[in-house]
Structure formats: structure tokens, C-alpha cells
């Protein structure tokens, strides 16, 4: 399969990336090269095989650990906003969000 520039544009937009025309060209070539590699996967018969989402699941079922419902985090706003690009009155500022 080969990607089209339109698909690259769609994916870039989904990922909120902006590719210069020359980048689009390069990425297109590289991704197409990459997907010829990926298409080797078609050769493997995976009928009835469960996907392995968590490595430990090879040994048996893994279960999510649950913590008790206790609120113990202090206010850490100041330390957490040290690296924030734009903050006012404790709020992160962004270009207006329109609905």
C-alpha cells in the first residue's frame, strides 16, 4: 500500500503537526518505505490469537491494581505552573476556545 499526500495531511492534522511542503514530501517517502516493511506482518497467520497489550499477560491474566479512595494530594499549583507558558490568576491561558 502507498500513502497519498492527502493522507499525510489528514494524519498531520489529527496529530496537530504542521509539515512544510518539503517535509510532507520527505515524510511521505519515508513512511511509504516504512510501510513496505510493515506489510511483512500480513504473512503471519494470527487467526484466534489474542492481542498482547501488557507483556506480563503472557504468564497469565493481569488485573488492574485498585487504590483506596483517599484524597491526599496537597495544593501544588505553584510548583506545577513554574514551566507554564502563560498563566493568569492560577489559570492556564490559551487562545480563546470557541464552541
Amino acid at each position: 500500500m502507498a500513502l497519498t499526500p492527502q493522507e499525510i495531511a489528514r494524519v498531520a492534522n489529527l496529530a496537530r503537526l504542521e509539515l512544510r511542503p518539503d517535509e510532507t514530501e520527505r515524510v511521505l517517502t519515508q513512511l511509504n518505505g516504512f510501510f513496505t516493511l510493515v506489510d511483512q506482518m500480513d504473512a503471519v497467520n494470527t487467526d484466534g490469537v489474542e492481542p498482547l497489550a501488557h507483556p506480563a499477560a503472557v504468564l497469565g491474566d493481569v488485573a488492574l491494581r485498585l487504590r483506596d479512595d483517599i484524597a491526599s494530594e496537597p495544593n501544588q499549583r505553584e510548583a506545577s505552573q513554574v514551566s507554564a507558558p502563560a498563566v493568569e490568576r492560577g489559570l492556564f491561558l490559551v487562545p480563546r476556545v470557541i464552541e
Binding site: 494524519v11 496529530a15 503537526l17 516504512f34 490469537v49
Partner: peptide
């Protein structure tokens, strides 16, 4: 950027089963 593009593509609508899911199955094998 390249890996974000690849990852976004293989998860996007219509490709998930062919790529991500297939890869997770081979991962088990």
C-alpha cells in the same frame, strides 16, 4: 515527528485492525 505520524496513522480509523491489532497479536506469538 515521523513516529507520531506513523503512530497516528496506524491507530486511525480503518487501519487499526490491520496494523496496531495485528502487531499486538504477533507480539503474543
Amino acid at each position: 515527528t515521523r513516529r507520531i505520524m506513523i503512530g497516528t496513522y496506524v491507530l486511525s480509523h480503518g487501519y487499526y485492525d490491520a496494523y496496531y491489532l495485528k502487531a499486538q497479536k504477533i507480539r503474543r506469538l
